[in-house]
């Protein structure tokens, strides 16, 4: 399966989705002008991956900041991951960033996927 790799910019996160090497990560800042357009390839990639996933998947979300339009799309990403077996979300937040910790907790209450919380 093809690797989806996007470099991060000042308003879009870094994306790394690599089935072969087991790397699944969205990190950085997310405040694109058109969040639906930005996340469309990510959600499509996950849709393909879900047809033949690895035995288990650790999906890392390490976001420094995201706007409200992105939060909706992050929920869409999580919903796409929800149906894949042995899925786990690793939610990183900066150790003094309570809002990002709380955001992760809220997402974990909205989908049926185990979340692991880690600080950086």
């Amino acid at each position: 399966m093809e690797i989806l790799k996007l470099e991060g910019t000042e308003d879009t996160p870094k994306i790394m989705l690599d089935k072969k090497n087991g790397i699944f990560e969205i990190s950085g800042r997310s405040l694109p002008e058109d969040s639906a357009e930005f996340y469309r390839p990510v959600i499509e990639w996950i849709g393909e991956y879900g047809k033949d996933p690895n035995p288990s998947t650790e999906f890392t979300l390490k976001l420094e900041y995201f706007n409200t339009a992105s939060s909706k799309l992050i929920l869409d990403v999580l919903s796409a991951l929800e149906d894949i077996k042995n899925m786990k979300i690793v939610w990183y937040f900066h150790e003094d960033d309570e809002d990002m910790e709380e955001a992760g907790q809220e997402f974990s209450e909205l989908v049926e996927i185990p979340f692991e919380f880690k600080t950086y």
Binding site: E33, A36, T68, A69, S71, K72, L75, E106, L110
Partner: peptide, 29 residues
């Protein structure tokens, strides 16, 4: 917080690209 979760669960991104969450988020922050 409840309103935020309620909106994010049920909203679709509008043509203008908004999720209808902006004011709620500002009030929370």
């Amino acid at each position: 917080k409840e309103m935020y979760k309620e909106i994010i669960k049920n909203t679709q991104i509008s043509e203008k690209g908004g999720a209808g969450l902006g004011f709620v988020d500002m009030a929370r922050k």
